[in-house]
Design a protein around this nucleic acid. Structure first.
Lengths: 198, 198, 198, 198
DNA sequence: TATGAATGAGGGTTCATTCAT
DNA sequence: AATGAATGAACCCTCATTCAT
């Protein structure tokens, strides 16, 4: 019964990743020990090592989950409807998430992953991939905007995509460091810049 | 001879901080052991502990140096001359730095510090302070812009400052992850947004 | 299975304390390193730290064991039988032990504990408690002796108890420093003093 | 001028020993570091090593000083006058000291030396020598007492000397651990035992 | 598959001692 | 003779990982 086992395996992996995310949110990346994960997941060390080869594998899985959630947001924003409002829809979707406590928690782990990416090739690969995909989707939209004259012809769609992405990334950082940030005002500015992009 | 001692002390501290920065850039924050710093600085463990009470103190000093450099850049950009061109001057100064290899190294450590700040109160304080100061300077400039009609009256100068800051922070992250980023194109977009801010 | 675990735990703790006692007897208190205890106990450092939180905890446990043995001797001597011969029985029990090599070893650690007690509050508490209990038991007996006219009414039973205790303590020190001490002659003197106490 | 140098040397050695005694009284034997002695003596490490080969040499010197003071007390008590009252004079001299704070401090270091003696041959030699000399002096006196019929012929003067010594040693320990001990009552008991020694 | 006691390399730190000045 | 910065072996302890049950 490979299916049952697979399901069971995924359940356990998910349980472990969830416990790890909680620990990281609480204590930080490197301050989270295997014992912490053991305690949080209510599994034994031996059991955890049945599902993950090493602590690094768990971290990789955490990063993968982060990437997966990212993709879903982009898909949600772009997947349906006309392109003309895609940017505004993306902005609403993206910033809208941050009212959810869990999203904020996971996003703050994302900040830690950025640092980790710089010295951990496996994590780097995942983080880079996530950023690149977002950037490419944005670039596509912006190229369409440009064709419709909604974006100045002088600008490189790719560079604009990077700047917009930066507006998202910087926001993630700022809200992680100080959650009193006024999201609505921030969004207003971002949308203003979009509307005057031409 | 207090002067000689002080100078000597500063020299050694600087030597240790420099070695630590190199190690962190190479291996990351938590992967850098005292032995690494010992090897890189060509000092003995005992000697290092004459100048810093603990590993944490060294890390704090690294963060402090990061903050100090940040302040200098802002001071350079705002310190002299008229306000009307302050933003453009800041943008040139800020992005101009990144042609320097050492600045890039230090900036990538800055990214790691963001992650560290989330779970290390001492580091958090320093990082937050740095961001806050930058934001306040930006807000002042933007308020002046607004008074002169160069920024839409609908927007909160503070929120605009945050978004601009995000454009800097996101850039730091993106270039740390991929140094092939085309800086000039990025700057062009940022300046375009400044010029159409009204 | 709490019982099995408890038993196992006690076994290991006992093993570690035993090894530590051997090390201390051989090298002294502060000259005994964790590595010594590791080598003597044939456990790993990590394993030892499963059963004791720190080196200090082990030392405290050694002191506690010392105290426990002390209590047993006193209980054995006083526990049963009439009070009239209690002192003689105690003397026989106490000095009789010293033919046992292990007792001598442990007693010599007791001497080291005296010194440690003077600058280690945790150890001090244990040592003081041990001495106090012995003294109180002795005082009770001596008060009974006095009531029966077997001890001069001029003397304070508590002070006599202290002097008797000193005869025990000084003996412990002297035999630790020179095991050729003639125990029988010493006991003869102590008993003579008891018999002429009136 | 070898004499001047000798004097100077003795002065410095004395200064160092004094500083060490203070440190030991405050923090204990092994908790006293060379840096503590450096700070207390207001000398430099290098300077201290000019006068003592090692930390162990300083400890030996501390033990030697302890022994010297001991000898002086015994000499004072026995040196002059008739033998018949020697024991009472010794008892008065010995216990009389303990009203002096400094003596108590030094005596408590003596307790630490007992422990140290058990695992440090150099210290052991000094401590044993001190005890042995005291014992021999006592034995002589007691032999004289016995000849005069003031001590039961059944008892070995040496063993009686040991028991008396123990009364001194145990007292030193007890007062080090609890300085509220009533010295006068203790002395009364000791003198009572001397007077009924026959 | 699950357990959790055991492992031991490696972590940060201290401190007796040295030696160039 | 005096200095005090420098040394580095050795300290106590942690934690990712293993394996007998």
């Amino acid at each position: 019964m490979p299916k049952v086992n697979k399901e069971h395996q995924e359940l356990r992996r998910s349980q472990i990743i969830g416990a790890t995310v909680k620990c990281i949110a609480r204590k930080g990346f490197h301050q989270t020990s295997m014992q912490d994960i053991v305690a949080e997941s209510r599994l034994s060390p031996g059991s955890i090592y049945t599902y993950f080869k090493s602590k690094e594998e768990i971290i990789k899985a955490v990063a993968d989950r982060r990437l997966g959630n990212e993709k879903k947001i982009i898909a949600d924003a772009f997947g349906s409807g006309d392109t003309s409002m895609a940017l505004n829809r993306l902005v609403d979707t993206f910033f809208g998430q941050f009212t959810d406590e869990d999203v904020r928690t996971e996003r703050s782990i994302g900040v830690q992953l950025w640092g980790e990416a710089l010295c951990n090739p496996k994590v780097r690969e995942i983080v880079q991939k996530g950023i690149e995909e977002s950037r490419k989707s944005l670039t596509e939209i912006l190229a369409a905007y440009q064709r419709r004259g909604k974006l100045s012809g002088d600008l490189s769609p790719d560079a604009v995509a990077r700047v917009m992405l930066a507006q998202f990334q910087g926001f993630v950082l700022q809200i992680a460091l100080d959650d009193r940030l006024d999201i609505d005002e921030y969004v207003k500015v971002v949308k203003h810049l979009i509307s005057t992009g031409s």
